[in-house]
Amino acid sequence: MTLQNVIEERALLKEFQSGDRIAFERIFRLYNTSLIFFATRLMASFEQVDPQEIVMDVFLKLHDKRTDFTTLSSIKAFLYISVKNSCLNAIEKEKVRLRRFDTYILDFDEAEQNVLSKIIQAEVLQELYAAIELLPEPYRIVMQKIIDGKSAKEISQELDIPVSTVNTQKSRAISLLKNNLSGAGIALLLLYF
């Protein structure tokens, strides 16, 4: 480094430390392009983060700390280290955001499947209840009580009929329902009974 360069560097540094806008612009022009390139390379897989914003934020920090620097080399080191750290922080934040997004999508898919399952179940139950309403009265009464969760013994006591009659009516009702229900309705019927 020539004596002329040393004198120019010290003058630029002194003007920069005093808050001179032109000195700051010179330092900005000196490092901005290479810092953006550096940040872009670090952020290559994370398009959501703007490397130019990171570099701008670092230059703002540099301006705030301008009195702390004694050489242009220390400014350059500060700029590169700060850009690297800011990029790493942005990458980590982006990874957290992506994990949250993935979790949200997974939860959303599960919730959507659950809602779809509930809709199908409600439709099939409606079909089953409608088919039960069409059964002859003794069969219908037995089936409704079974749906309410009562055992054959409880139904026989309530209706004052033998347990074997309850089982026979249930069996005949199921046989009639199988003829009137869709595949899903039959599957639900077999699940219940």
Rank of each mutant, 00 (worst) to 15 (best):
T2M: 08
Q4L: 15
N5R: 14
V6H: 07
E8C: 08
A11R: 14
L12V: 02
L12K: 04
K14Y: 06
K14S: 09
F16C: 06
D20W: 10
D20Y: 07
I22P: 01
A23L: 14
Y31Q: 05
Y31M: 07
L42A: 05
L42D: 00
S45D: 13
F46C: 05
Q48R: 11
M56Y: 14
D57Y: 08
F59D: 04
K61H: 13
L62G: 03
H63T: 01
H63C: 03
D64Y: 13
D64I: 09
D68L: 12
T71Q: 02
I75H: 06
A77T: 07
F78Y: 15
S82F: 09
L88I: 12
L88C: 01
L88F: 15
E92M: 07
E94L: 12
V96A: 10
R99F: 14
R99V: 15
F101C: 03
D102W: 11
D102Y: 10
D109V: 10
A111Q: 09
A111S: 12
E112V: 14
S117I: 04
I120V: 12
A122P: 00
E123F: 09
E123K: 13
L125H: 12
Q126M: 12
E127N: 05
A131C: 06
L134R: 13
L134M: 13
P136A: 12
P138F: 11
M143N: 02
Q144I: 12
Q144L: 14
K145P: 00
K145Y: 12
I146D: 00
G149W: 13
K150G: 00
K153T: 14
K153S: 10
I155Q: 03
Q157P: 00
L159P: 00
V163I: 15
V163W: 13
S164W: 11
V166N: 06
V166C: 03
T168M: 15
T168Y: 15
R172A: 08
R172L: 15
R172W: 14
A173Y: 09
I174L: 14
I174S: 03
L177E: 04
K178S: 02
N180P: 01
S182N: 06
G183V: 12
G183A: 12
A184W: 10
G185T: 05
I186M: 08
A187E: 11
A187I: 04
L188R: 06
L188H: 03
L189R: 04
L190M: 07
